[in-house]
């Protein structure tokens, strides 16, 4: 299943609900476009919900890094929500777990944005 990204607003936080596989090609390009559009529209508090993401490859990991650097360079915040064991393992292996702020509860995650 290819990736799909939908967005919703919770207060001033934009939640991106990701579904499917984020891999080189359509999935990673779609993520980049989604984040670019949100930032261009002035959204600087992004919470990426990965709860329904079954699979990420190195390109998908790279897009998460792109999202993080793009948002933080605009003085925004980019955080992750609901990592599967596989995605968590990927972030541990790549040592990116220390870079991203990761949450497992949406309400608490939304409140954590300053």
């Amino acid at each position: 299943m290819s990736a799909r990204f939908t967005t919703r607003q919770v207060g001033d936080v934009t939640v991106i609900d990701a579904v499917g596989r984020i891999t080189l090609g359509e999935g990673s390009a779609l993520l980049r476009d989604t984040v670019k559009s949100l930032v261009a529209a002035g959204n600087k508090k992004l919470l990426m919900n990965l709860g329904d993401v079954s699979y990420i490859d190195s390109s998908g990991v790279g897009e998460l890094v792109y999202s993080f650097t793009t948002v933080t360079s605009q003085q925004g915040q980019f955080k992750l929500l609901n990592l599967s064991k596989r995605v968590e393992d990927l972030l541990q292996i790549t040592k990116l777990y220390t870079v991203f702020e990761v949450h497992d509860d949406e309400t608490r995650a939304v409140r954590s944005f300053s």
Partner: peptide, 21 residues
């Protein structure tokens, strides 16, 4: 090495690391 500080925020270069892992 993509896990080293100067490379950590690069968008690519993690494929070989994941293969080995």
């Amino acid at each position: 090495d993509p896990t080293q500080g100067e490379n950590l925020l690069r968008e690519s270069g993690r494929g070989l690391l994941l293969m080995q892992a």
